[in-house]
Amino acid sequence: MTDIAVVDYGMGNLRSVHKALEHVAPEATVTVTSDPAVVGRAQRVVVPGQGAMPNCMHALNTHGLHDAVVQAAQNKPFLGICIGLQMLFEESEEGHVRGLSILPGKVVHFPAAAMTMPDGQKLKVPHMGWNQVFHTHDHPLWSDIANDERFYFVHSYYVDTPDSTIIAAQSHYPFAFTCAVAKNNIFAVQFHPEKSDHTGLTLLRNFTRWTPET
């Protein structure tokens, strides 16, 4: 039986995620899969993703993984990474595409008019590189991770949600934006833990040991 399924719909940094999970959970069976049945049988599910949201949603549907991902997000420990976070929401400005509508809110582009520091420095989009992450509430996946640790980001869009209770962390670029969400069995991050050195590995290890409250 697959302990952890890494969902392969053709748009993720699968090798890095797979290797990182094997490193932090050597006792687990980690499977990269595009088979909905394998996703359905897995005890834990990770959905990574890179690229454009419209392409990712199209690929998810083309591979027949839409329903399997929705079901996993409803009933087992679920980790979304980058696009795997964004697809959980209702819609995205990128291509005006619908998401999975599991969580309320939309995905929006960093506004060009706001990308200026107080000293006049212009910030580039995409937001790329290391940035601090500030927890907004306690969560088992933050265990042994300081409240201002740095994670690695690569993105031009971020989540705007009306439900503040699901916001698990924020970062700043140059304003505060949501970079992690949590609800029940779901935890999802905008940054890339698989590229975030020891801190990212700690988060992934915490996921492999997490038993969500029912």
Score class of each variant (00 low, 15 high):
V32M: 07
G40I: 05
I145V: 14
G40A: 12
L103K: 04
E149H: 15
H139V: 10
N75H: 06
N61E: 13
M128G: 03
I186F: 09
H127A: 08
V108T: 12
Y152M: 11
I145R: 07
N55A: 10
V38W: 06
G200F: 07
F175N: 15
I166Y: 15
E194D: 13
W210T: 03
V45L: 09
L79T: 01
E22A: 01
P111V: 08
F207Y: 02
L88R: 02
T161S: 15
V30Y: 03
L79V: 00
M57F: 02
A28V: 00
V107S: 02
K183L: 14
L21G: 01
C56P: 00
P77A: 05
A180I: 05
A37H: 12
G80E: 06
R205L: 03
E213K: 08
L14P: 00
G64M: 11
P212R: 05
A42V: 01
V6M: 10
H109I: 10
A72L: 10
V108S: 13
T29K: 15
S34N: 12
S16Y: 01
A114F: 11
P111Q: 14
H63S: 08
T62K: 14
D35F: 10
G12P: 01
W210F: 00
G200S: 03
K76L: 09
V125K: 15
V189C: 11
V47M: 11
N13I: 08
V17L: 02
Q50V: 11
Q43E: 13
I81K: 02
H135P: 08
V69F: 08
P193D: 07
D138W: 12
H198N: 07
L79F: 11
P77C: 12
Q74G: 02
V39K: 11
G10W: 07
P48C: 03
P26D: 01
I81T: 05
V181L: 05
K124F: 09
P118T: 12
N55L: 06
H155M: 14
V24E: 02
F175K: 15
E27M: 06
D8S: 03
D144C: 08
E22T: 02
V125M: 14
G49C: 02
C82H: 03
G120S: 14
W142H: 10
L201T: 00
I4V: 14
T211P: 06
Q74T: 07
L103G: 09
M1W: 06
V6A: 04
G120W: 06
P26G: 02
T208E: 05
L123Q: 13
T214A: 11
S143T: 13
V7G: 03
L21Q: 01
L88G: 06
P162N: 13
K195P: 00
G105T: 11
P126G: 09
L204F: 02
